[in-house]
Write a protein that binds this DNA or RNA. Structure first.
Lengths: 227, 227
DNA sequence: GTCTATAGCTTGATAGAC
DNA sequence: GTCTATCAAGCTATAGAC
């Protein structure tokens, strides 16, 4: 870990990331963070200004790394299959692989970061604005790739399927331990390799089932729920 | 609405539900709640005791109603198809219909409640314990029904697929407005009928794709990611 | 059931010495 | 860059009058 050698600025970011992930923005005090980081409270203001600005710094630090990796994986898949679009499975894999990989093998900092993302993504105030700011530029590239791979599909179908993907993925990061308890230990929410081999086929099948030209051709009226 | 006629106890619950949904447990003060409810702060302690107990009361109030409705829908589907299991689509519909219906047509209180559920489900501390307490007894009945409808499937596949369902569903309740922004207004996160007609086939296709006897028969080794 | 008053503590933020 | 000291504001919770 060699956490000892880090400077105070990084230690504050690490501590903030960890505490925000545990108890959220409001559940975490600057004093919690300072104590966890082993620095004085006033140092936080000195380096980052207000609490909200510290939060933004935490969000930004790893987002850039992730987005670069994910974009590279998408482009690699596109090159492999050019001039055809890649199969859905490979697009979904490019979208999720870097995230699950970092979460599994990146150490505690990455784990905390993803747990924080899960909370933010499901927060009514921040879910829209923050996720949009840090991640949606890349999301558009994936939506373009999916659109190419699902010819003739309806735009709204596509967006909603992305929404389901986002929800399934971020709950996985939340590491709430719920599935562990539910399955009586059979599933381990920290074993993200187990997730990955199921998430990709699950989501791919969903996209293929919903994003069809047939559904796109249906009249504006909704299909009607069962009952 | 006839909110005027409600007694103070209910008004406190309504206000707490709304404020907790907006800013979470720690982001909401008892004074916020009292102000929103139009009552004195001390009344909260009188009726509910500590802040945490108020939170529990909020969670419990609607959980019981929902679970009863969902169980009835599941049993109705099972009766319709007896002695065979119902199709996956009908099981998923029974799982989600009451939730989406209340969220759409139940008024602001229900909407807030579900937004709160989304946050709780993705919270590292409470996601496991709270959701387990209030909802998992019913979840087991749905898992039993799914197991019957997916003969020969692997247990871990089943649990993970349920996890994906839970994530996709709760993000929908969060009503973050992210998909609205992402789709430039094409999708409306408040129109849960739009969700419902896509969620059920999306999730059903995922279950059918992952929970197969073929996958269950694979060796313990994982399938190996792309790359 | 409802309200006033207040105890006792923690919070975010900053001013200023070193 | 770092720390001490401090402030005004807000917090939960309760005791006690009505």
């Amino acid at each position: 870990m060699k956490a000892e050698r880090k400077n105070n600025r990084e230690r504050i970011l690490d501590a903030a990331e960890r505490q925000f992930a545990k108890l959220g923005f409001f559940g975490t005090s600057l004093r919690d963070i300072a104590r966890t980081a082993g620095v004085d409270v006033a140092l936080i203001s000195y380096h980052f200004g207000k609490k909200q600005e510290l939060f933004d710094a935490v969000m930004l630090r790893r987002a850039e790394i992730l987005n670069a990796e994910r974009q590279q994986m998408l482009e690699a898949a596109q090159r492999r299959h050019a001039p055809n679009p890649p199969p859905i499975e490979e697009i979904i894999d490019a979208f999720t692989h870097a995230l699950l990989n970092r979460s599994t093998k990146g150490g505690e900092g990455w784990r905390s970061y993803f747990a924080l993302i899960a909370q933010v993504n499901n927060h009514p105030q921040w879910g829209g604005a923050v996720m949009n700011q840090y991640f949606d530029p890349l999301v558009y590239k994936f939506l373009d790739a999916l659109r190419d791979a699902l010819p003739g599909c309806d735009e709204r179908d596509l967006f909603w399927c992305y929404h389901f993907l986002s929800g399934a993925l971020t709950l996985t990061f939340a590491e709430t331990g719920r599935i562990d308890k539910l399955s009586d230990g059979l599933c381990n929410s920290e074993d993200l390799d187990d997730v990955h081999e199921r998430l990709v086929p699950f989501i791919s099948a969903g996209f293929k089932s919903v994003c069809t030209p047939e559904r796109a051709a249906r009249p504006g009226a909704r299909r009607g729920g069962r009952r």
